[in-house]
């Protein structure tokens, strides 16, 4: 089998995305399957992560595989000045697949070219995080029953948020209508709007969250970070405008679900957690099934 890596969501065809989501669905029904028995998975986390690393490790454990690796660069030879090239070439011979998070953009693509085994990008700086996108797609399909013709509202920091960019570009494959809700300073960058224009997809831009709550099947929340503002006064003015509260859900559709890549700080008020439309913790759980599907897809194991 030809080596396949997953660096960017664009590496996958639409059929392949659906195949991985279908595999994930089977893992949700039956999470423990010994499909990676005898396989060694390296988890190289050059920067810390809670959810991504633990859900990968949980996925490997449920598949009967073994894990080697490190959880931050300080416990690796990077502190001695080893290059990524040398680290990957070495680890490559110890394992069957590499899962890597690295702060430098493009590091995952480079690692996939250096390694003989598949590489899964678990986040390369502000660039790509395809396994998050796949678990978002899984959560959307599971809660809505389809990916076709949905209305997706993306809220918060749309300028720097890599998860919203990847998800937007992926959802564009299924004729999605987008609502972008953000402070003007953190709006969706022009190149992404151009991408939608070229596909003839409809999108709306808003600054008020209340305007769209009733129009969305999915509300995808992200954090508005203070350090993104050039003027601290601007942040103070808008910081509470992008906080979702239970009182705002009155006009929302029954089928609507609230997603968030987590960690949240204050952008979703705790009173939302008990609403049946809050879905972010289930979304995090879906990450395990989706990553089981991704590991098996890349290693040619079928469930």
């Amino acid at each position: 089998m030809k080596k396949r890596s997953l660096v960017s969501i664009d590496d996958l065809s639409t059929d392949e995305i659906i195949k991985i989501l279908d595999m994930a669905k089977k893992f949700e029904k039956e999470p423990t399957q010994n499909l990676l028995n005898g396989k060694v998975v390296s988890t190289l986390f050059f920067e810390p992560s809670t959810r991504t690393r633990l859900s990968f490790e949980s996925a490997v454990s449920r598949l009967g595989g073994k894990i080697i690796g490190f959880t931050d660069a300080s416990s690796s030879s990077v502190t001695k000045g080893e290059t990524l090239n040398d680290t990957i070439r070495t680890v490559n011979s110890y394992c069957d697949i590499i899962v890597m998070r690295h702060p430098i953009e493009g590091s995952a693509r480079y690692a996939s070219e250096v390694a003989d085994v598949p590489v899964i990008n678990a986040g390369d700086g502000a660039n790509q995080h395809p396994t998050q996108t796949l678990l978002d797609l899984y959560s959307i399909r599971k809660t809505q029953g389809t990916l076709d013709n949905l209305s997706v509202a993306m809220v918060g920091d749309l300028k720097y948020g890599r998860t919203v960019h990847s998800l937007m570009m992926a959802m564009a494959r299924w004729n999605t209508t987008f609502h972008f809700i953000s402070p003007e300073e953190l709006g969706m960058p022009p190149e992404y709007k151009l991408y939608l224009d070229n596909l003839d997809l409809t999108y709306y831009e808003h600054t008020d969250l209340n305007e769209v709550s009733g129009k969305a099947d999915i509300i995808y929340m992200t954090r508005v970070q203070k350090e993104r503002f050039s003027d601290p006064m601007e942040y103070e003015k808008v910081k509470n405008a992008y906080v979702l509260r239970r009182s705002m859900l009155g006009s929302c559709r029954e089928n609507m679900r609230i997603l968030h890549p987590l960690p949240r700080v204050n952008e979703i008020h705790y009173d939302v957690d008990s609403d049946p439309r809050a879905y972010y913790f289930e979304q995090a759980l879906n990450g395990v099934y989706t990553r089981q599907g991704i590991l098996c897809f890349l290693l040619g194991a079928s469930n």
Binding site: T83, L84, N85, P103, I104, E105, G106, S107, R109, Y110, G125, A126
Partner: peptide, 12 residues
């Protein structure tokens, strides 16, 4: 590459 955080500006 103009991006200072790009791998091509960090490794050979």
């Amino acid at each position: 590459c103009f991006n200072p955080k790009c791998i091509t500006n960090h490794e050979n």
